[in-house]
Design a protein around this nucleic acid. Structure first.
Length: 355
DNA sequence: AAGTTCTTATTAC
DNA sequence: CTAACGGTAATAAGAACTT
């Protein structure tokens, strides 16, 4: 069955909201993320506006590097409650445009617009795609009128193409890729533009002379399977713009976790256990809130130098008991403190939901 | 031999 | 000394184990 899928992505979401709340920031570099602490900060950039991006600042960049690139930028902490509220308002608007929607994150969503094929009888395919474009324009306009925020819309025959179209259309854009345009759209793009190909996969592909999606298409399915396992087969399909993933709003939580990076690397049991107990309480609360039980506990430990290890324990029976969680989690953490001698940078806790 | 557990790697937002 | 690198979550794969 032919589909028309729309993907909407808010432009530099966190930073744009901060600009809206404080118009004096407009035209200046704005970086939302960790506290740079005069260059000594340990976190990363969440979002940078386009002015900051001119300095080479982007999402996930270490905040220390961002400070080095542009110390005069406006550095702001992440005000998640605010972004969440704004996101809810936006998603309420988005949902009105189709009964089939999927919220991916605070600033991203898909709509399945396939119903317009049926709704408009006696309208050519060409006009149907025009209609989808109008819907996209209206959605962008309504969000801007009500929230004063710009967004980018991508429209295509599936989620993959819609997402890649919005990526190429930003900022404040609207890009429609019809089925007969998929090939010419994809082939000149870099392999990393294909969702699912990250730095590691891209490096392996470049090592064998593959840089563009066109080149990627020359690799057989079995070759990709040899190189990347099960993922390889998905990459084969994606390079050809094939994607059957449905737009669906049902989300199944499979794990719940917390982790923190200390202000300074430490081996102080006081600091470590105080933080760990707090994390246990938080994770347990979220567990109860969702009416879940857990079966596997995983504790994460990252040492100075960034080597990261995990230890896990699977119970005989799922439970939601706080005392079991606390004692089992602490046992796992203790094993790290006993065997590791290095300073600890981060600790984490994750529960795999059972049944 | 098959299923489960443990650990690491990769990706995305 | 040359990288700097947060938090949350999903998925895959291989080794080690238990049955």
């Amino acid at each position: 069955m032919k589909r028309i899928i729309l993907h909407i992505d808010m432009d530099y979401f966190f930073a744009q909201i901060e600009e809206r709340e404080n118009p004096r920031f407009r035209g200046k570099p704005v970086v939302v993320g960790a506290d740079p602490k005069g260059g000594q900060g340990r976190g990363v950039v969440s979002t940078a506006n386009y002015v900051a991006r001119k300095y080479g600042i982007h999402s996930a960049l270490p905040i220390s590097k961002a400070y080095e690139l542009c110390p005069q930028a406006i550095f702001l902490p992440v005000n998640m409650e605010l972004y969440q509220k704004v996101s809810e308002k936006i998603m309420e608007i988005v949902k009105k445009y189709s009964p089939k929607w999927e919220i991916v994150s605070l600033d991203e969503a898909y709509l399945d617009l396939s119903h317009i094929f049926r709704d408009r009888e006696k309208v050519s395919i060409e006009n149907t795609w025009m209609e989808a474009k109008k819907i996209g324009k209206n959605l962008k306009r309504e969000i801007f009128e009500k929230e004063r925020l710009t967004s980018t819309v991508g429209i295509g025959p599936n989620k993959l193409i819609a997402k890649m179209a919005s990526e190429k259309g930003k900022p404040n854009g609207l890009l429609v890729i019809k089925p007969n345009q998929v090939k010419e759209f994809l082939e000149p793009l870099d392999i990393e533009d294909l969702p699912g190909i990250g730095p590691k996969t891209a490096e392996k592909l470049r090592a064998i002379g593959v840089n563009k999606i066109k080149g990627l298409k020359r690799l057989s399915k079995s070759k990709l399977k040899d190189l990347f396992g099960k993922w390889g087969e998905a990459i084969y399909e994606r390079a050809r713009g094939i994607d059957e993933e449905p737009v669906t709003s049902e989300e199944i939580i499979k794990s719940i976790g917390r982790q923190i990076t200390f202000e300074e690397d430490t081996r102080d049991p006081e600091i470590i256990f105080k933080n760990f107990e707090y994390m246990i309480r938080e994770v347990h609360q979220e567990l109860l809130k969702n009416n879940f039980s857990f079966k596997t506990i995983t504790v994460i430990c990252r040492y100075q130098g960034f080597e990261t290890y995990t230890k896990s324990k699977t119970l005989k029976e799922p439970t939601n008991d706080f005392e079991i969680l606390k004692s089992e989690a602490k046992k796992l953490l203790l094993r790290f403190l006993i065997e590791g001698k290095k300073l600890i940078r981060l600790i984490g806790l994750r529960l795999k939901i059972g049944y």
